[in-house]
Design a protein around this nucleic acid. Structure first.
Lengths: 111, 111
DNA sequence: CTAATTCATTAGCTTGAACTAATTGATTGA
DNA sequence: TCAATCAATTAGTTCAAGCTAATGAATTAG
């Protein structure tokens, strides 16, 4: 049972399964845009490690980058989560547990 | 940046990140109830490997078991996916992309 | 120009994960 | 009873993943 070459679900899951790397993604997401140096501060790992994590996040489609001068700014790409959403949706998890919220939510939006 | 002892999100993500193990979960889910021997057939790995995968799926709260005679039947426990749902919900992924579906869905259920 | 900063990459180490093969305990069928 | 089946566990191997330390390329500050 091997993914032919590499299933996107596997890529995204693996990227987010590591706590350190997931923390990096979370910080990038919260920051709108953030440099590698800034990410390294308070991360508990070296700059090289951060760069490696960013690389796999990027390959998973979860972050994008923008170079400016000697800095490289990263931003989150939440569309990268889509494979996860699809996979979970296939298992019908969302609607089941959130049915009661739907009506109230809809009324807030379109009263 | 280490999970204190072990974050549930990490546990679930790691459990599902492996293609073989995820395939096991998918088969369990589709089967309502399925024995280890049956899971082993056509899995491409040995029975021992399947048992190991089931063990970590169980620890992640993704499957439950029922022993009967010399068989052990496994069933999916989709509530185990809740940590994932919460985590992704925190990133606002769901509603954004699925707003247009909500109205039609609601009308089907409560016309 | 020189020194310092930022980031990516690489080699090397260590650890954990996935697997097999084999064993064991339990249950069932002949 | 005895052989066979089912499932869990264990020891042992292999390989990948995460990390550090070090280096190098590019940019900027003095």
């Amino acid at each position: 049972m091997i993914d032919a070459v590499q299933n996107p679900v596997t890529t995204v899951m693996r990227a987010l399964a590591d706590p350190t790397r997931r923390a990096v993604f979370e910080r990038v997401f919260e920051s709108k845009e953030i440099s590698v140096a800034e990410l390294t501060r308070g991360s508990g790992v070296t700059q090289g490690a951060i760069s490696q994590h960013l690389k796999s996040l990027k390959q998973a489609g979860l972050v994008a980058e923008r170079a400016e001068g000697r800095n490289v700014y990263y931003r989150a790409a939440p569309q990268g989560l889509e494979p996860l959403v699809e996979w979970m949706d296939h298992y019908g998890v969302f609607w089941r547990e959130r049915f009661q919220n739907l009506r109230t939510l809809l009324k807030e939006i379109d009263p």
